[in-house]
Design a protein around this nucleic acid. Structure first.
Lengths: 180, 180
DNA sequence: GTCACTATACCGACTAGTCGGTTTTTCGGG
DNA sequence: CCCGAAAAACCGACTAGTCGGTATAGTGAC
């Protein structure tokens, strides 16, 4: 049986969740503390400032991306397939964390921007090793971004889910027919 | 000679620009007013509240999308090509306005979400008429979203511009080879 | 005693929105 | 063309409320 998540983890979770579902403005210290089930004082006990909370979120993203890259490196033949399809799984820890950091980046948080840029470079390199053709890698990454972007809007409210898994499967199939 | 933009237009421009480049949090009434070259009082004379400003932004997006759809309907053969490539032009009035509304949507503004959903549906319908194959339309739209998402992050800060026009050209070429 | 908090009070900075007053533009009569 | 009044456009100080952050006294578990 897994440990129940520690208060520190619950606080990061809460920050992440509020960023994803309600945006940066709603992520106030009190709202974060309340969602994590602690008092505001309890939050500031673990994180002296909001920037420390953000730093913890950035660390989490780095770890999750590291693990994702390891999976892709382990099975190069499925790397592109895996990359595109995992963009759909908006409930996964990686996608949720990525989305939260993206929200901060869009509020022009320089660190968040740099981190996302580094992650994208790493994904590009791994896909490049696995696929070999630069244009195909760009195509795959853009497709992943598109799926991700769609999913992130759908998640916030009333977007029609135009991209269900079966459709993505067929699109991946179409791309597989490209000769290069 | 074109009219110099009216104060009302300049205020909407200012709101749009700040949303795109600095995010929702930075779009305060004073910042908007200052960028438009008026005082806060001048702003509130034209827009009683921030919601009225947002409503004006929504109206603007609707008009711009209307015009875009008309272009695509006029030349169905180039519609898909046009859709993908125009996603790159982040400086165009349509893309900038779309990006601003997207920022509001990500801050969970329900109206913004609904508007974006309507626009996507309209684009889908027009592309469907022009292309005929549903999976290809999804592929085209996802690709456009990916380009757009990339561009929007690049615009905010230090993202490497992985998607230059020449690359997009080649990718569009690759997709053109798909048989369906 | 220390750790991990709770609960509450407080401060300074900032923000949306209001309001009284001022400037600029418009327009009809002489 | 000029005058004066009304309407439109605009200014900036003020209010009420929010948020990040600080501080502090207390509590139960180990």
């Amino acid at each position: 049986m897994g440990h129940a998540p520690s208060t520190v983890q619950r606080l990061i979770d809460a920050y992440q969740d509020i960023l994803v579902s309600d945006g940066e403005r709603s992520a106030t210290l009190e709202a974060i503390a309340q969602r994590a089930g602690v008092s505001k004082g309890g939050l500031t006990y673990h994180f002296k400032s909001k920037d420390e909370l953000a730093a913890a979120l950035f660390d989490r993203l780095q770890s999750l991306v590291e693990a994702d890259l390891a999976v892709m490196r382990a099975e190069p033949a499925q790397a592109a397939d895996y990359y595109v399809k995992s963009s759909l799984d908006v409930e996964s820890p990686l996608e949720r964390c990525n989305m939260a950091v993206t929200r901060l980046a869009q509020g022009s948080h320089p660190e968040a921007n740099e981190l996302l840029a580094r992650c994208r470079t790493q994904w590009f390199d791994v896909l490049m090793d696995a696929v070999g053709n630069e244009d195909m890698v760009h195509l795959v990454m853009l497709l992943g971004d598109g799926i991700y972007f769609n999913a992130s809007l759908t998640g916030t409210g009333a977007m029609p889910s135009e991209t269900d898994p079966a459709t993505i499967d067929r699109i991946v199939g179409l791309i597989g027919t490209i000769e290069y």
